[in-house]
Design a protein around this nucleic acid. Structure first.
Lengths: 227, 227
DNA sequence: TGTCCAATTCAACAAGCGTTGAATTATGTG
DNA sequence: CACATAATTCAACGCTTGTTGAATTGGACA
């Protein structure tokens, strides 16, 4: 029982499914199932090919996931780094709000990456630690610079720890993108589409009053996220 | 090869491993691996028994997990409900801080439950929705009452939405318990043991300035969590 | 002593997983 | 037209998983 009947139709045309399509499929499946539970067979099914093909383009399941991160993070980093330039003299409130918008723009379509980053971090990020750190640290550092500049300009309250503030801002934004659409409609009277924006805005109002030097001063007009 | 050599020592003494010990083992394994990845064999190994024994005490893996939740939530609810009594006239800041302490007290030893609740919520909580809702809603409602009382007493800023505030407070507390010990030492110079407390305190300072009617008023003295 | 019963183990099941090696095909190039 | 080659599939491997049915044990009770 080593070799069976070789009769079915076999090989196909060249370049029917390129690596990028595989990444799209992987993203969708990871998003629904999480890293552990997402199976290569499900990803292949989604992409309309054989599981073995994944191994032609990627070394392993983990490498596939790594490629997925590598595809998204540079865009976030580029936007955040432009925002963090010292020459940007807009009000700090506006710039911090912009951080949320960047996350929203890049990651709102991509629950897989969010929940994965979140999940892997929470469990100690064994295995892909290096990758996450390499991709995440520059983003985090850039945001931190915005807080430091805000402190120098006297727009944030003196005792504020820029790293902790960064941590709270980013973490809560990820949470809102993930959890708000599920939870807020359940506990409040909000349709899921509105829940994210309402949650973002309410969270930022609260956050800003927490970090501002003068919490009673009115916020500058902030643009709405494109939904 | 249907029946093998029946020679080993088989059955044992009565009540060697009771359901509670199984729950302890399950909790530990769930904590390390998450709901999906935790295997019944690993749980049984931890408890020092056969995997089949789990099915003697529980209907399925999911039922085991449900029992785990059922064991912890009532304690949280009891404490939170006592805190939410309208006769409690302590400053709202102090009562809200107390909410964090309750979570810390009941869940800090129990990362499994936290990450599970978090994970299941994030992915839509299919399967155990009813259970989570049944256990969680009364807790959330009680905390909300504290915010409503704070609003009535004029200690919170008038526009504040009590449900959103509850959501932010609880969500961020869960995040801090989970993520701070992993992330803060990595981005700041803090040993893991101190990271949680420092994170809790910094988060609450920020949060309170965000919700307080008079953010510049000094906070009442708040007790430290017992670490 | 014999019998019942709750507690426990054993052995096996079907299914799903990540992964690999060999076979197949379609195309571009000489 | 032949050939090399990149893209794809097939079939299988060894492993782990949740779950089950039958067998076994040891104490309680008559």
């Amino acid at each position: 029982m080593t070799a069976a009947s070789p009769s079915k139709s076999r090989g196909p045309k060249p370049t029917k499914v390129d690596p990028d399509q595989l990444l799209d499929a992987a993203q969708a499946v990871f998003a629904e199932a999480g890293l552990q539970a997402a199976s290569l067979r499900a990803i292949a099914r989604r992409a309309g090919c054989d599981p073995a093909l994944i191994y032609y383009h990627f070394d392993s399941k983990e490498a596939l996931f790594a490629a997925l991160l590598q595809r998204r993070f540079p865009g976030v980093l580029k936007d955040v780094e432009r925002l963090a330039e010292a020459s940007d003299l807009r009000p700090t409130a506006q710039r911090l709000w912009e951080v949320l918008l960047i996350y929203h723009r890049h990651l709102s379509q991509d629950p897989g990456i969010r929940s994965l980053v979140r999940g892997e971090i929470a469990k100690g990020a064994e295995g892909i630690t290096g990758l996450i750190e390499g991709q995440m640290r520059p983003v985090v550092t850039a945001i931190r610079r915005v807080f430091e500049q805000g402190l120098e300009r006297g727009e944030l309250r003196p005792g504020l720890h820029p790293m902790l503030a960064t941590f709270f801002l980013v973490k809560m934004q990820l949470e809102i993108l993930d959890v708000a659409p599920v939870m807020l409609p359940r506990f409040m009277d909000l349709p899921p589409e509105e829940a994210v924006v309402a949650g973002m805005r309410a969270w930022f109002d609260l956050f800003w009053r927490g970090v501002a030097r003068d919490p009673s001063a009115p916020l500058p007009p902030l643009p709405d996220p494109i939904v």
